[in-house]
Design a protein around this nucleic acid. Structure first.
Lengths: 154, 154
DNA sequence: TATTGTTATACTCTATAACTATA
DNA sequence: TATAGTTATAGAGTATAACAATA
């Protein structure tokens, strides 16, 4: 039998590196950490920036609807929208029922454009050059991993 | 001008879906959530299970070394190893200096085998069938995203 | 001096339960 | 009754600072 070589206690082995799920997690956290740095000039966290972006593209959306898109619980949306309103990026208007329609202010629109640029640039910088075909394939593969099937098709 | 169609305030738009970083994050959190369920029978969280696995494969490793591999701060390793010791899965032995050498107990070895099986099965179930070549390519791509270059070669 | 283990602490993100208001 | 907003709270996971012990 191949006797194992003595291991340096200061250099442990990573038995998880062949798991795609593990690599996915490490890659994701690394991406997030560097995106946080890129977003620092805007004063927004990744989640806050994402919320702003969704509302900029869906004027009149309710808090709950934004939460459903980004998979954020209703309860956790409250401090997020509150901060964005306090920053003068978001406005709340009366909507149907108890709902409030969210829209971006002029400043919010400007910041959302900046956020979009930062995120696109970050994506391009972090990811190795992929052909459009590879990129499409990869995107659909990742989407399939978390998107419930039939959510889009019917 | 192309007037935008009226948007349903209850169905917000997702302007992030074309970003690979975003898809990576959503896919990763979805994977993690389902792995948590698969690991529930072991009574261990994903992080705890990962720590156990690393020690099982690196007998005598120190807490700090395990933390370096998994990117967990020294300070946060303390409650992790404490719990695993309390569960009878880990043993601490005197090592060089102030260091303690970590080894798995008989029970720890059994649980670590179970953890390994669960993680492999989870990987196989969640991920679409990929050819060995695609799998290798994908793994190396994800690795490149977070592994500092030269960490292995230099 | 450098490293390990440790304590304390704080922040973010996430999760649940319960309450109010409105269609 | 179903949905929206809200409050309070709790739990992970993660981050820093500081200290003692040992090579």
């Amino acid at each position: 039998m191949p006797r194992k070589p003595p291991l340096d206690p200061a250099t442990a082995v990573d038995p998880l590196s062949d798991l795609l799920g593990y690599q996915l997690r490490r890659a994701s956290t690394a991406m997030m950490a560097s995106l946080v740095e890129d977003l620092a000039p805007t004063g927004l966290s990744v989640v806050e920036a994402s919320v702003l972006l969704v509302i900029a593209d869906t004027p009149g959306a309710t808090q709950s609807a934004v939460g459903r898109v980004l998979d954020i619980h209703r309860a956790n949306m409250v401090p997020l929208t509150s901060k964005l309103v306090a920053l003068g990026l978001l406005a709340k208007e009366a909507g149907a029922g108890r709902a409030t329609a969210l829209t971006v202010t002029a400043r919010g629109r400007a910041v959302s454009k900046s956020v979009r640029t930062i995120m696109r640039r970050h994506d391009a910088r972090m990811l190795p050059a992929l052909s459009p075909a590879s990129r499409r394939k990869l995107l659909s593969w990742l989407r399939a991993l978390w998107n419930p099937p039939g959510k889009h098709g019917g």
